[in-house]
Amino acid sequence: MIEADNLRYTKLPLNNGSGAMPALGFGTLIPDPVATKNATKAALESGFRALDTAERYQTEKEVGEAMEEVFKTGKIRREEVFVATKLWNTNHRPELVKPAFEASLKKLQLDYLDLYLIHTPYAFQPGDEPDPRDANGNVIYDREVKLLDTWRALEELVNEGKCKAIGLSDVGLESVQEIFAAATIKPAVVHLESHPYLPEWELLDYCRKNGIVLQAFAPLGHNSEPNVLADPVVTAIAQRVGKTPAQVVLAWAIQRGTALLTTTKTPSRLAENFDVSTLPEDAMREINGIQTRTRFNSVVQTGVPGFIPRGK
């Protein structure tokens, strides 16, 4: 059985000199508002020091309330928690970025953000409808704004001191390269689906070379088929090292140099997800050698978050 160590406290430095991001983070895409607030408080109390939310999740208010209550106890200070949220697709036009950012900041009850991400590289028709569709049910994209235009508006937020770092979410390598080449303030973080069945090695290699943190959502898969946690390689390692399959996969993600987000409403699962320890090198090699390739969320292809339907 592997011994407990400091892997769970790993921090990854940001390329703009604004500090470091905890590798192990908590995601707040939880449909129920009360559950969101309770889970966020529990995550902070369990040891998590990175929180992720988004305008689109509609959880910023509850995350803000949870943080405020925890900070009031004096046990955790604002400066100890790395907070990220995201700009939604309907606010890509440069003049809409700052109002959207400030609305998020207000809901979160914060004076500044540690990280602000463009949620997807796809601009949607501006307006109050977060998922604008035409009469045929097709997404109405905004063709008048380019990703770089939106990025320039995010750079202004950093220049004004409201935001420490900015990044991209749900993007492919080509978009990351395009923005990195043209940006005055380089992307500090790229956030996207990644797990042993979708390791994104090429993108991770590019990020490593350019000092960008790759942050994985759905690091355990989506509890869908094929099931990452039921993979025979993962289960065999878990048995061998005396950890759960989830702990093995989370440790793999941190050890290969990525940050990650886990989401759960269950206190025991929260504690399990935080209790990760360093895997032996042979275990890392075995997981790296898994050949299954599956994407569970189609957001990177359309800008619309959602699971990809799979037949039995």
Rank of each mutant, 00 (worst) to 15 (best):
A43Q: 03
V83G: 07
E55D: 14
V145K: 10
P99I: 01
T120R: 08
N89S: 14
P130G: 07
E60Q: 13
D142L: 11
P121S: 10
G137H: 07
K106T: 15
H92K: 08
G127A: 10
K86M: 11
A100W: 10
N89I: 06
N89W: 07
N138W: 07
L108D: 03
K72V: 00
L117D: 08
V81L: 02
H119G: 00
Y112N: 06
L44T: 01
Y57N: 04
D142I: 09
R56L: 15
R56G: 07
T59N: 15
K106P: 13
A135Q: 09
F82E: 00
G137Q: 08
V97T: 09
Y112F: 14
A43W: 01
A100V: 13
M67S: 02
V97R: 11
F48L: 09
G64E: 06
G47T: 07
N91W: 05
K107Y: 04
A39K: 11
W88M: 09
L44R: 00
R93G: 05
A43C: 06
L108C: 01
A50P: 00
E95P: 02
K75V: 04
N91M: 13
A43H: 02
T73I: 06
F101E: 03
N136H: 12
K86D: 06
D114M: 09
V97I: 12
G127K: 11
E80V: 12
A42F: 02
E79Q: 14
W88G: 02
E55F: 15
F101N: 02
Y116L: 00
E129F: 05
V139F: 10
G137Y: 06
K86F: 11
L96D: 15
T40M: 05
P126W: 08
A54P: 08
V145H: 08
A42T: 08
E144W: 06
W88L: 05
V81K: 03
E80P: 06
